[in-house]
């Protein structure tokens, strides 16, 4: 399996009223294609910062990020956004679905923001396929307000998969869900690597998700300190 994403000596430092805060301190990481990785750690340990750098939403203060064989150092905002659109799928703890749009249109949101790309009919077909893949084909026309939390998160996952990303990142995706729904969503997420071949990275506090992942990383004080057994 080839390396899909890599961090080399990545540091992230934030300014704060009490002085600079080092959120990541020289992180080295390689993620292989088609694997599922769980990232665990306490609040404030740097997990979310780590995935935001992996998802190209934050530039590191120092170090290098490589995604889909491309070094991102030196890319401007426009190029970075384009690479993110084509290569990364992101899911958040809050579902961030547009209440004005149907499930299908929410899944198609990346299409609305991409002047090139597929034709509308193909985009609609792709959205419906993804909703089917996630087990909610009957919700295609429904608005987010007419769905349960688990269903909304599935729609958000489908949206993240719309552009066939090589890297799928989820930041505490089950944090807003009840236990049963969280289990369902976790199963869907971890199964994505096998079903779609994409590389999955999940930030979680949920021990069961960590256990089910191919690989679990523990982040503490801005460093990947130990593999969790």
């Amino acid at each position: 399996m080839s390396v899909v994403a890599a961090l080399r000596g990545v540091q992230v430092t934030y300014p704060s009223p009490t002085g600079p805060v080092e959120a990541l301190r020289g992180v080295d990481l390689e993620l292989l294609g088609g694997t599922a990785t769980a990232i665990v750690g306490r609040s404030g340990s740097g997990k979310s910062t780590l995935v935001s750098v992996l998802a190209l939403m934050r530039r590191p203060t120092a170090g290098e990020v490589e995604l889909a064989g491309r070094t991102t150092t030196g890319l401007d905002d426009h190029e970075l956004a384009r690479l993110r659109a084509r290569s990364v799928g992101i899911v958040f703890q809050s579902f961030h679905l547009d209440p004005a749009l149907s499930a299908s249109d929410n899944v198609m949101l990346p299409w609305y923001l991409d002047a090139a790309g597929r034709r509308r009919r193909d985009a609609r077909r792709r959205a419906d396929q993804l909703l089917e893949l996630l087990g909610i084909p009957e919700l295609s026309r429904r608005r987010p307000t007419q769905m349960s939390g688990g269903q909304r998160q599935r729609v958000a996952i489908a949206r993240a998969l719309f552009n066939d990303p090589v890297l799928f990142v989820a930041d505490e995706p089950t944090g807003n869900l009840d236990e049963d729904t969280a289990n369902e969503v976790a199963a869907v997420l971890l199964g994505l690597a096998d079903r779609t071949g994409t590389t999955v990275v999940v930030v979680t506090h949920d021990r069961r998700i960590a256990d089910a992942a191919d690989r679990t990383l523990h982040v503490s004080r801005g460093r990947i300190t130990e593999p969790v057994a």
């Binding site: 426009h78 659109a85 961030h96 949101l109 949206r159």
Partner: peptide, 12 residues
């Protein structure tokens, strides 16, 4: 949040 999401999804 929507504008943030649009940017996160690759919007310019």
């Amino acid at each position: 949040w929507f504008f943030g999401l649009a940017r996160a999804l690759g919007g310019q």
